[in-house]
Every structure is written in C-alpha cells, then in structure tokens.
C-alpha cells in the first residue's frame, strides 16, 4: 500500500507545471524515504531530478518500493482538476496498474477522486556524481526567469560568466547583443531578494536558452534559485519545493565544435 497526503496540494500542481514541458512521461520511485523522479528530456540534453521527502507529507505510507510510470500530460490534466487550496492524496495498491488522486477541499465538503492508468517505462537512471562546484550563484527566481526571457530575444544561447566581480549573462544574435550583470547584494531587507555568489574559481559556460526557459517554469515553487557551475560539466539549476524537497535540472553545456 502506498499513500501520500499533502495538505499544501498546490506544491504538487506546481511540480507538474515545472516538468511537463520538458518530459512527456516519467517514473515516480516511491520508497519509505519519499518519492523521487529522475528523467532525461527526449533529446538527452537535460536531466530532471525531483525529490519529495516522506517527512514533508502530512501522511506518508509506503509498505513496498513502488515504481509508478506516468504519462505526465495525463497527470497534469488530473492535477488541474484540483483547486489550489485542495489537499492532495496519491494512493496505490502494491503491484497496482493504477494510481488514485484524491482532492479534498479545505472544508472537506467536496471530495473528488481520479484514477489514472500507470505505464511500464523502461527508463535509464543516470548516476550523478557528488561535485564541489566552482561557482554557486543564488538569486531571486523571478530575476533569473526574467534574464532568461529577455536574453532569449537575442540568440539561442546564453553565456553565463561568473567571476569575483559578479555574474554576467550574455546573448548575441542577428539583432545585436545583450548583457546583464548582477553583483552580489550588499544588504537586503528580505533574504529571498539577495544575490549571493560563492566562487572558488571563475567559470564561463554556454547554455541553450530553450532549456533554461523550460527550467524557469519552476519559478512559482520558490523565491530563490541556485545555479551551480564548474568548467566543462552540466549546470545545475535548483529550486526548493516548499520545505518538502527540491527539483534539480542538469543542463549539458554547449561546447566548442
């Protein structure tokens, strides 16, 4: 028996919004410790990893490890039927070929349930090595979304250059060039408005706008985002999911041909 109840059901709705453009289908691995999802986009350029800790749920039970393969378009359609303030419960029997989503209004006066077929997905899992990144940039998630959107007008790629002076995002194309520089904030009223740069060595890498823009669909999940970079390895874009977990996007850099 698997059962996970989340009073703050809107978080699950936001997680789906954050992955459904990038992934058509994916497996949710349910275990005693919580729920995880790892999947590559169709082109194998990026990898998404979602981690939801068991303690983050208001009720969590997972008697046997369970892999629930889902069509994410279908899952998203079902979650759209939940109101933002609904309590969401996911339920499945051991070895079941369906999962049930239960939505309860806060007053408990409306209860809906939707059953969805599970899929058998043969997906590769990749081992992500523990990495000490040369640069870790924390910035407001809305600011990052704005930067990616604005620079996408100029070209297909964004160059992210992190140095002790700050971080510079650049794009170049037919209409011209754009540069956005952010310095570390000296003092802020709210922690979530801060730009914090931890740098061991300067790093400059180039990434596809299309993917960065898809990652920013996670913006409603968290007021802050962190970007981790080291030379010649994938960028990690990480958002926390309330206090129940996090979503990480890994994006392979563009390299010299």
């Amino acid at each position: 028996m698997f059962e996970a109840r989340l009073v703050q059901g809107s978080l699950l709705k936001k997680v789906l919004d954050a992955i459904k453009e990038l992934l058509n289908e994916a497996s949710w691995d349910c275990a005693d410790s919580g729920i995880q999802l790892q999947a590559m986009d169709n082109s194998h350029v990026s990898l998404v990893s979602v981690n939801l800790r068991a303690e983050g749920f208001d009720k969590y039970r997972c008697d046997r490890n369970l892999i629930m393969g889902m069509d994410l378009t279908s899952m998203s359609k079902i979650l759209k039927c939940a109101a933002n303030d609904d309590i969401i419960t996911m339920k499945a029997q051991d070895n079941a070929d369906t999962v049930t989503f239960i939505f309860e209004s806060p007053s408990q006066e409306k209860v809906s349930d939707y059953e969805m077929k599970l899929m058998n997905l043969d997906q590769d899992h990749l081992g992500i090595p523990e990495t000490d990144y040369a640069c870790v940039i924390k910035l407001p998630s809305g600011e990052f979304a704005r930067i990616c959107r604005d620079l996408s007008n100029f070209g297909e790629s964004i160059v992210i250059a992190c140095s002790k002076e700050g971080v510079k995002f650049s794009a170049a194309g037919d209409i011209g060039t754009g540069n956005i520089k952010l310095a570390q904030t000296s003092s802020v009223d709210k922690e979530e408005e801060a730009v914090i740069i931890e740098m061991q060595e300067p790093v400059t890498l180039t990434f596809a706008c299309r993917y960065l823009n898809m990652f920013t669909k996670a913006t409603p999940l968290s007021p802050q985002v962190s970007l981790s970079m080291s030379p010649d390895v994938p960028l990690v874009v990480e958002y926390s999911i309330g206090d129940i977990g996090q979503i990480q996007y890994f994006l392979a850099p563009k390299i010299d041909d």
Binding site: M40, S43, H44, V45, S46, L47, D124, H125, L126, G127, I128, P129, S157, T206, A208, V233, P234, F250, L251, A252, P253, K254, I255, D256, D257
Partner: peptide, 14 residues
C-alpha cells in the same frame, strides 16, 4: 561555433 553536448556524455548509466 559551439554545439550542444548531451547529458549522457557527463553522467553514466546506473
């Protein structure tokens, strides 16, 4: 000119 690399170039299959 830069070309897009694949994530599988960096992370191996488990």
């Amino acid at each position: 000119k830069k070309k897009q690399s694949n994530i599988t170039n960096f992370f191996s299959k488990k």
